[in-house]
Structures are given as C-alpha cells and as structure tokens.
Simulated scan of single mutants.
Amino acid sequence: MQRVSFQLRIRPELVDEYVARHTPVWPEMLAEIAAAGRRNYSLFLGEAGTLYGYYETEDDEAAQAYLAQSEIAARWEAEMAPFFADLEGRPDQAATLLTEVFNLEDQLAASGAAKR
C-alpha cells in the first residue's frame, strides 16, 4: 500500500467556500475516487489556506491515470481550480507531493516491537 500526501494552497478569501463545497462532495465524485483505488482519503486545512491531503492506494500512477481520464473528475477539478493559488493545471494532477519521513507501523514492524 502506498501512502500519498500532498499540499495545495487555497486562496484565503475562498477558504470558507472551499470547505462548504466539500460538505459534502458530489456522490459521483466520491465514487470515482474510490474506483480509482484511493482509500483512507482525508484533507486537512492549515493556516493561511494551506491544504494537506492524504490517501492510500495500491498504485498511485494507476489512480492518477484513472482520474485524469474521468469526465466526472474533470468537471469537479474544473470547479475547484479557481480556489487554488499558484497552481498550473488540475488540482488533482498538479499538487505538490510531500515526502514521508516517519511511519509508526513501518518502524514498529522493522524493529520487531509489538504494537501496544
């Protein structure tokens, strides 16, 4: 399982509307995300409109390709694009990926330590 995290920046004046648009997300878009193979997907809002995302997938390249070809995802991303600052391209395809530096389960498994 791959763990993927990314960062985007929402225009500060549009943060409230962005949050409202995700409460809830279109059911057909939720289905496309799941069909792409993304699981345990979360978005976190930080200071000054910084958005952090996280999901797990078996094959991120395949998930990206699936969503890149999806008409539903294209419509959703076109509606979301104006919310983001300093972004060229679709938000789902152009987000800045973050490097994982620590994972508890991986280190516990590597050390042979039992989970408590």
Rank of each mutant, 00 (worst) to 15 (best):
Q2V: 05
F6C: 11
I10R: 04
I10Q: 08
I10A: 08
I10E: 09
R11M: 09
P12H: 10
L14P: 01
L14S: 05
L14R: 05
Y18W: 12
Y18G: 08
A20S: 13
A20W: 05
R21T: 11
T23S: 14
T23V: 10
V25Y: 05
V25S: 05
E28F: 00
L30R: 10
A31E: 14
E32D: 07
I33K: 01
G37D: 09
R38Q: 12
R38F: 03
R38W: 07
R39A: 11
Y41N: 04
G46E: 13
A48D: 15
G49W: 02
G49A: 06
Y55T: 02
Y55N: 06
E56R: 03
T57P: 07
E58Y: 00
E58D: 14
E58N: 01
D59K: 00
D59L: 03
E61Y: 02
A65R: 06
A65N: 07
A65G: 06
A65W: 01
L67F: 06
L67E: 11
L67R: 01
A68K: 07
Q69D: 15
Q69R: 10
Q69E: 15
I72W: 13
I72L: 15
I72K: 13
A73R: 01
R75P: 08
R75G: 09
W76I: 12
E77K: 00
A78V: 03
E79Q: 11
F83Y: 13
F84S: 01
A85F: 07
D86I: 02
L87V: 04
L87N: 09
E88V: 12
G89K: 02
G89T: 02
A94Y: 07
L104P: 14
E105P: 06
D106V: 01
Q107I: 14
Q107F: 14
A109Y: 01
A110T: 10
S111M: 13
S111L: 13
G112Y: 00
A113L: 13
